[in-house]
Design a protein around this nucleic acid. Structure first.
Lengths: 343, 343
DNA sequence: CTGAAAGCGCTAACAC
DNA sequence: GTGTTAGCGCTTTCAG
């Protein structure tokens, strides 16, 4: 029998008014210890459970946060999501998930999250925020934080792409490489642009001149070029162009690095002996294929995203904050550093 | 300014009662076309949005489904989740996600989902349903469907493990192998038991006698032995035992197969030339490492899970249904079949 | 400190 | 057809 116990039942059994019951249940101070105990006992005996939606309606608060995430970035978001989930349930909030399989769903999900009273805040992941939505979002004043994407109008949590690319490239240079190429994603993507900058800067700081012919992207633009095939194609371009193969590559994502390595070994280049490779992201896969890469603190980013959101909720006029995390270099075998050390 | 428009505002502006407004908004038939239009126009002009929780309270329906999923099965659930999400939003429901990072969270999440009126149904993934929860679940009569796990008391969607194992093993046998071993997970896991059965049955049907010494598990029991290290260890056991290495392996999961292949190549066995391997799951990784495996129709399972749940919701006394999907063999390079064909 | 009463915004049964 | 009214279950004044 589904418990249909309401505060009225408790009030009757405990011979008090519903107001008192409500106070007890919400730990309101002004209740005598005696009545408090009496009410509590009855509540437990009756196995009372509050009706979530009645509370939400009366409190004018949803205790719910929704996350709009692209399912196609898979690896990244799943780890961030774990941080989000842990923090969110620690706070007693609910997480309603809007997983985007198709970019067209974004608008409708935003609209849904915007329904009056529906959620207290939104987390928006990895996608460009549609221009036409910004004003609506601003109007409703619904707190939102962006994760892995940017907009001057909203708080954001992201990763220092340029810095990470700088570190990755520098690592390769310090390993003795003077000829380091880059396999990048499409430049429509902000992270791709930033990672390219970091790469250039690293070259520059080490007195190596930048050569456009050493950076390739592939043509497959699924996920803005952050995909395995694009990595594969990029290497093939080097080969088909007859250009000389660099001795090292910084690749803008691990998943592309997969393709890079496949193409390389298909063409007889050994990694890392002939060509060293460093990726970006540290997806779970990276560990398995022993890829040296830049790790983003994904779980932490999730946790912080919720913390920031909650802060914003209780402090709507707080100045907008953009936080960027520094990725850390994870040295595995694909860069050749370990082997070198052993000698 | 956040729209605070209620049906009262609409009623006033359109000079009708709130009942009529509600009827129009809910497409109730008994309203004149004229008033219907008038009300609709006002609603649009005022940018009216229903208050979700007021509706849920009044309708005694949450239009929400919650999914309790283990985050540690990563690859599998994320694909299933896409099916779940697509179907769920097509039905206009909300998905509240309870991601389990730690098995202890299960009880508390179930309790939360069980809160009066909170959700219309639950999807429970991949984990053993805690015994002590079964009676509570039954009592509340809240519809629930299990995905990738079983209990006689609830509807379930799962994969035909024995059948898949049979197919995988048979494939190896048909490739000419008479000595095929199995690397299995821990037998506390139902899928592991079933996959072992399928393996045995395949041997038997092809007149090959089963030998216990050909199946190993490794000792790492994280995720019930469905992990990379366990696969690695299993192969090492073969080597340390001095037992002869089988020429082919059926491995109970792709992630274990990763470890198997790593161990094999570390010990100088080439895959598939020296040892053929077939996995199970077809996680995304499998494609990258060219692993032959048994594919589970994950997206479809997600879609069906929601369909089943919705059916159960509108038909509580329906007989309990257990659906099993047949996995399909995906031939890639690790089994040696492709190479063979080329000859 | 506590009870009564007035909402929160919507649905649905009931009259006319 | 349409307006009125009574809830849905809880929170929160407002008296006392």
């Amino acid at each position: 029998m589904a418990s249909k116990v309401t505060i009225y039942d408790i009030a009757r059994e405990a011979s008090v008014g519903i107001g008192t019951v409500s106070r007890v249940l919400n730990n309101h101070p002004s209740v005598t210890p005696e009545t408090r105990k009496r009410v509590k006992d009855v509540a437990i005996r009756l196995d009372y459970q509050p009706h979530t939606y009645a509370q939400r309606l009366a409190r004018r608060q949803s205790e719910t946060i929704s996350a709009i995430i692209p399912f196609f970035t898979n690896y990244f978001f799943i780890e961030v999501l774990q941080g989000v989930q842990d923090k969110i349930s620690q706070l007693g909030y609910d997480l309603v998930l809007y997983g985007v399989n198709n970019i067209d769903q974004v608008d409708s999900y935003i609209s849904r999250a915007l329904q009056r009273g529906k959620v207290d805040g939104i987390l928006f992941f990895s996608m460009r925020l549609p221009e036409r939505m910004i004003s609506r979002l601003k109007e409703t004043k619904l707190p939102m934080v962006l994760v892995d994407t940017l907009s001057p109008e909203f708080d954001s949590i992201s990763v220092a792409n340029a810095e990470g690319a700088y570190a990755a490239t520098t690592h390769l240079i310090e390993l003795g490489h003077r000829s380091v190429g880059m396999v990048n994603a499409q430049l429509v993507s902000a992270p791709a642009v930033e990672r390219l900058q970091g790469y250039k800067r690293a070259l520059e700081s080490h007195g190596i001149s930048y050569s456009e012919s050493l950076v390739k992207s592939g043509t497959n633009n699924k996920a803005d070029g952050f995909n395995r095939e694009a990595g594969y194609e990029a290497i093939m371009e080097f080969i088909n162009n007859g250009s000389e193969m660099p001795k090292a590559f910084f690749v803008s994502s691990d998943i592309q690095a997969m393709g890079v390595i496949a193409a390389l070994s298909e063409k007889g280049f050994r990694v890392p002996e002939d060509v060293a490779v460093v990726g970006f992201d540290d997806i779970e896969l990276a560990r398995h294929i022993k890829l040296t890469t830049m790790r983003q603190p994904m779980y932490q980013m999730g946790v912080l995203a919720i913390e920031r959101l909650v802060t914003r909720m209780s402090n709507p006029d707080m100045e907008i904050l953009h936080t960027t995390f520094s990725p850390t270099l994870i040295v595995r075998e694909s860069c050749g550093a370990l082997r070198r050390n052993q000698n």
